[in-house]
Design a protein around this nucleic acid. Sequence first.
DNA 1: CGCACTTTTGAACAGAATCAAGTTTTGTGG
DNA 2: CCACAAAACTTGATTCTGTTCAAAAGTGCG
Lengths: 247, 247
Amino acid sequence: MATPLRIVEVDKLKTACSTCSLHELCLPAGLSASELKSMDRMIDIRRTVKRGDYIFRAGTALHALYAIRTGFMKSCVLHEDGREQVAGFHMMGDLIGMDAIGSGQHLCDALALEDSEVCEIPLKSLELLSREIPSLQHHFHRIMSREIARDYGVMLLLGSMRAEERLAVFLLNLSQRFAARGYSSTEFHLRMTREEIGSYLGLKLETVSRTLSQFQAQGLVAVQNKHLRILKIDSLRELVGQHGCRV
Amino acid sequence: MATPLRIVEVDKLKTACSTCSLHELCLPAGLSASELKSMDRMIDIRRTVKRGDYIFRAGTALHALYAIRTGFMKSCVLHEDGREQVAGFHMMGDLIGMDAIGSGQHLCDALALEDSEVCEIPLKSLELLSREIPSLQHHFHRIMSREIARDYGVMLLLGSMRAEERLAVFLLNLSQRFAARGYSSTEFHLRMTREEIGSYLGLKLETVSRTLSQFQAQGLVAVQNKHLRILKIDSLRELVGQHGCRV
DNA sequence: CGCACTTTTGAACAGAATCAAGTTTTGTGG
DNA sequence: CCACAAAACTTGATTCTGTTCAAAAGTGCG
């Protein structure tokens, strides 16, 4: 029996690892003391990035993957003619830069939407250590796979959902990710502009604004600028998939 | 200087490996005889699938990855409410099933659009062998990364392109993939229906049909049923990114 | 404190979806 | 090999969602 993909749960995140402050990468359980030490050696380079700084840019060579310790960032895919689109928003515990392994060059820009801190993880070191620690190897594969799964969810969103649904999915996804990190699932700050939300969802900023206003009028959320409170999370969930079943 | 992503070249494919008949997976060069033998042992299970057969279904446990030896298939992401969307079309040399590593369950259906042959690659074996053969390990990472890069391209397409551009990108992409496999880049059979093309591109089948007719009227292509000939490939390329720069 | 950026909201417009009808192709069984 | 039914495709007319254009109000950063 085929279980349908639940978009809003695509990137469930496990608990954090206090030892190395990396989340996605720290999952492998049951590591020995020496293995943990190797992990720490591998990810010892920390970088602080200010709001607006690039972590990496499209076209530059891949030096390392980056695990986000704190902060919030976006990645943008660029098209030849100058069009760009937000490919994802990333927060504490996310690993970014994996798109560059294939060609050795980054295919997107990654920039900080607020002052942030990242850990550099040299790909060579990660691969080296992966060969010694099977659970790390498998874990890394799972992280890459989850990124693919997330992308499939976005493709579904962009390809077959109406504006209201897209925004609802977006809010539910943020909610769930904040919750997984120990923050409130119903009240949070939108670190990005309406335009960036629109870019991610394949909508214009006006549409995002209008739809948010509509949600507020319906009593689903309370928005004030970047501060958002989800009032009826179940109604939001119902909204996704109920309307616009254009099969 | 940031080099923008060229969608139509996202999944460039290298030459095939005659030894094991796997393409994406066979790239690592300079393997020793014993390493090649290990590779062959790992991928010794072949499966023939008839047109319409599923290779795997969403919700089922991940048993193996599948390398396509011959044939043509699609993968479909499913939404809770029954909506489904084509997430990709796959042909000789492609590796599918990587979305399932994260959760251990497939998130999409994969089914054959024509009689095909696939090689099963047990994930455990692949990870085991990867630890012994660094070039295989890196190569596998590159394959996963390329899938992520492809997804970013699709996101850009779905999020910011108009119908004509989407179809042009689609045709150029097919053209280039056929060319990379030694087939004609200008003349090929569309193995999928208009509806499946539409699903992949976030369009309705009528729009796909109309746009194809329009391309034909403009002398860009010659279509007859599933047979397609690209007449002005440069015009198609110009079409992408020229129009509809809605930044 | 002021200027630039962001957001909201309205009105007109455009592109693609929907609805609908007719045609062609394909696959199956006699 | 042909006949027939089902599936796939094309094309037209209409509708609707989201974009575009525009203007005003609000926010926040330096």
